[in-house]
Amino acid sequence: MFANSRTVASAQSGPHDNLAALVGRHRDAPFRKPLAAYSAAAFDAAIAAWRQAGGAPLILDAGCGVGESTLRLATQFPDHFVIGIDQSQSRIVRGKDWWDDVWPDNFVWVRADLVDFWRQLHDAGIHPARHYILYPNPWPKIGQLARRWHAHAVFPTVVALGGVLECRSNWDVYIDEFALAVEWLSGVRPHVEAWTPQDGTAPLTPFERKYLASGHGLHRCVATLPSR
């Protein structure tokens, strides 16, 4: 039953016709949504853990789910500090008996609203060295464009954080749109490719593992962005 994930079904075969207008509107209009009540404490706790660990170059694992990607990134980049962020407390605290490797000490998980966390980082002048958005919900229906991260009002802030920004998806249209939005907002043309983990490299997330086992094509966008 593991390798049974369905491919993304959508009436879109290419980038959405309204993407450019929506990204432009978000670029030109300040995003003023109030922060969630718990966001300040969550942000302070994560940043305190990072600083207590010595303030190493920062990696954001945005939407980390059960946290496997956070652990793998912390292991892969031992000279960095990884903050794994997810809005679901139950996913973050779920048992980790599937992790057989040495437990790294250069990470923290935090329950937070990603929209708030990104804005708080930007307002605090904290810029990640690397930033991962791994297999976000694709929201593939044509009317769901505004739910995709690259068409969300917070995305100009995400791009302004800078660093090496990487998004992965099993839907090529999502990656193509993501790359376009990044280029329009930053002037940097991302690298887009069909992609699979290298031999001997474990999948970063449970979704990546399941999509590979189900025979899906994987795609990624990588851009090295200036901080603003």
Score class of each variant (00 low, 15 high):
residue 128 P to A: 09
residue 10 S to D: 09
residue 4 N to V: 10
residue 110 V to M: 03
residue 15 P to D: 07
residue 75 T to I: 03
residue 146 A to Q: 13
residue 21 A to E: 15
residue 101 D to A: 14
residue 201 T to G: 01
residue 27 R to A: 15
residue 77 F to I: 12
residue 56 A to V: 02
residue 146 A to G: 08
residue 44 D to W: 01
residue 5 S to T: 11
residue 154 V to N: 04
residue 66 V to M: 15
residue 64 C to P: 05
residue 61 D to I: 04
residue 148 R to A: 06
residue 135 Y to N: 13
residue 86 D to L: 08
residue 102 V to P: 13
residue 209 R to F: 05
residue 154 V to A: 12
residue 152 H to W: 01
residue 88 S to Q: 11
residue 45 A to D: 05
residue 13 S to P: 03
residue 195 W to R: 13
residue 22 L to E: 09
residue 111 R to M: 12
residue 119 R to T: 10
residue 115 V to I: 10
residue 80 H to D: 14
residue 15 P to H: 04
residue 67 G to D: 07
residue 7 T to F: 11
residue 72 R to P: 01
residue 92 I to V: 14
residue 68 E to N: 08
residue 45 A to R: 02
residue 102 V to Q: 14
residue 31 F to M: 09
residue 59 I to T: 08
residue 207 F to W: 13
residue 175 I to D: 01
residue 127 H to W: 01
residue 93 V to C: 11
residue 48 A to P: 02
residue 144 Q to F: 06
residue 160 A to L: 03
residue 120 Q to D: 10
residue 79 D to Y: 01
residue 198 Q to H: 13
residue 139 W to T: 07
residue 144 Q to W: 04
residue 128 P to M: 05
residue 64 C to F: 08
residue 95 G to E: 06
residue 11 A to P: 12
residue 4 N to I: 10
residue 147 R to E: 07
residue 123 D to T: 08
residue 65 G to T: 08
residue 216 H to K: 13
residue 188 V to C: 09
residue 215 G to A: 13
residue 217 G to P: 12
residue 72 R to C: 09
residue 114 L to W: 00
residue 39 S to M: 03
residue 135 Y to Q: 07
residue 84 G to L: 05
residue 228 R to A: 14
residue 153 A to W: 02
residue 212 L to N: 08
residue 211 Y to G: 06
residue 135 Y to T: 07
residue 209 R to P: 00
residue 32 R to L: 15
residue 188 V to F: 05
residue 169 S to L: 07
residue 48 A to E: 12
residue 204 L to T: 05
residue 83 I to H: 00
residue 226 P to N: 12
residue 156 P to G: 10
residue 30 P to L: 01
residue 102 V to C: 12
residue 147 R to A: 12
residue 16 H to N: 13
residue 169 S to C: 07
residue 126 I to H: 00
residue 62 A to L: 15
residue 45 A to M: 02
residue 59 I to A: 05
residue 134 L to K: 02
residue 163 G to M: 04
residue 188 V to H: 07
residue 181 A to F: 02
residue 146 A to W: 07
residue 189 R to V: 13
residue 141 K to P: 14
residue 70 T to F: 07
residue 154 V to G: 03
residue 194 A to M: 13
residue 225 L to M: 02
residue 121 L to E: 00
residue 155 F to H: 07
